[in-house]
């Protein structure tokens, strides 16, 4: 518990988490406002369209999470951290927890903020949250952000450099995953099991029977898992990656 408090203080006494959180909120809610403002009878506003900025928020949150650990290496405060708590896994788990919690909170605020502003701009459109799909599309964002933050912390921990960690995270999520499906024959099969594609399934999977077009929202997923197993698989992947990162950090000279 003490360690969680320590990591919370460390995270929130620097500026980058605040900037990133603010940026994530502005981007997600701003895009929702843009979508709502430009919607009309032909392109009506729907639940998925309110979450148009979901992908932006996700990358910003991952940058924030990666920086939370790489800046410790950048300024050598990681040494101070390990001096204060020599059992290294504990502070690292605490850090991942705190970062994931912040990511979750930002995700919920972004998702409900986006939904709220769309409702405000287009009060007549059908934005009621009824089905389990609707709930996952909005409330699920925080969960995905939290797990993604753990992945980003793990990558940051392994690479220790801001530039490298951010480049890997961006290229992996935004370029490698979508491009893989273009590889002939095997591409689609691989793509179905890539972690961020699987995570999207939780948000966009099993649209409700009213058949709202999900195309205006976060990218639809071709993962074969059902939504809840999908988020479980995504979380399991994050845990494994993080465990590897902690093992590496534990062995390495600080």
């Amino acid at each position: 518990m003490t360690l969680l408090a320590v990591e919370r203080m460390k995270l929130l006494t620097t500026r980058s988490p605040w900037w990133c959180a603010l940026l994530a909120l502005v981007l997600t809610i701003g895009f929702s406002a843009l979508m709502a403002g430009t919607s009309d009878a032909a392109d009506p506003m729907n639940i998925s369209a309110t979450q148009f900025g979901y992908g932006f928020g996700l990358v910003v949150i991952m940058v924030m999470a990666a920086l939370a650990v790489t800046t410790e290496y950048r300024f050598s405060t990681i040494r101070a951290t390990f001096l204060a708590v020599p059992r290294r896994p504990s502070p690292l788990v605490a850090k991942a927890t705190v970062v994931a919690l912040l990511a979750g909170v930002v995700g919920e605020a972004a998702a409900f903020g986006s939904w709220g502003i769309a409702k405000l701009i287009k009060p007549t459109s059908d934005l009621a949250i009824n089905s389990s799909y609707d709930w996952r599309a909005i409330a699920g964002v925080g969960l995905v952000y939290a797990v993604a933050a753990v992945i980003a912390v793990a990558v940051g921990l392994m690479l220790r450099h801001s530039a490298g960690a951010i480049a890997v995270l961006m290229i992996w999520t935004q370029l490698a995953e979508p491009l893989v499906q273009l590889i002939p024959k095997v591409g689609d099969k691989i793509h179905k099991w890539l972690p961020f594609n699987v995570a999207n399934k939780f948000i966009t999977g099993n649209p409700d029977p009213s058949a709202r077009d999900v195309l205006h929202g976060p990218p639809p997923s071709d993962a074969v898992l059902a939504p809840w197993p999908a988020i479980a698989a995504f979380a399991a992947f994050a845990v494994v990656l993080f465990a590897v990162a902690v093992t590496v950090a534990n062995r390495r000279d600080a």
């Binding site: 895009f31 843009l34 979508m35 430009t38 919607s39 009309d40 032909a42 392109d43 148009f52 992908g55 932006f56 990358v59 910003v60 951010i166 480049a167 961006m170 290229i171 935004q174 370029l175 195309l215 205006h216």
Partner: peptide
């Protein structure tokens, strides 16, 4: 990275 990989692709989803 975010600009070419994400922003440029997502803007086309904005209606009209």
């Amino acid at each position: 990275l975010i600009w070419p990989l994400l922003v440029e692709n997502l803007v086309q989803l904005i209606p009209r």
